[in-house]
Amino acid sequence: MLLKDKFFSIENTVISNDGVTYQIRLLSDCDCYRGHFPGKPVSPGVCNIEMIRECAELFTGKDLFIEEIKQCRLTAVSSPAICPSLDVAIKLIPASDNTAYEINASITDQARTYMSLKGIFRTKQ
């Protein structure tokens, strides 16, 4: 995985009947902050998307390909200083042929929602 234990680490896992919530920690020493942006560390939005994918892979035990993002809203700026602890909540609906999942995910803390995402993640061959 690209970002697990580099950009984020998992502190706790809460499994629900239609998905999972990972309580994660953003790691301030991730090298992405050297360039995003120099002197102004802000978590790249795409790293948050990638984190959702990696959490979904951990939960399903499968390698997943982001085939489609129907909509992903980035509603607040995140960084290890602003929001060191986050909840990554993912609901998954398996497609009828079991080769893909319909994903509904959000990244939140008590204060606000940072991201919401709807998409289709397909199992890699």
Binding site: F37, G45, V46, F65, I66, K70, Q71, C72, R73, L74
Partner: peptide, 16 residues
């Protein structure tokens, strides 16, 4: 300027 992504919609990836 500094640009932030606000929304991604109808993203399709055909191959990596």
């Amino acid at each position: 300027p500094i640009g932030y992504i606000g929304e991604v919609r109808k993203f399709h990836c055909y191959r990596r």
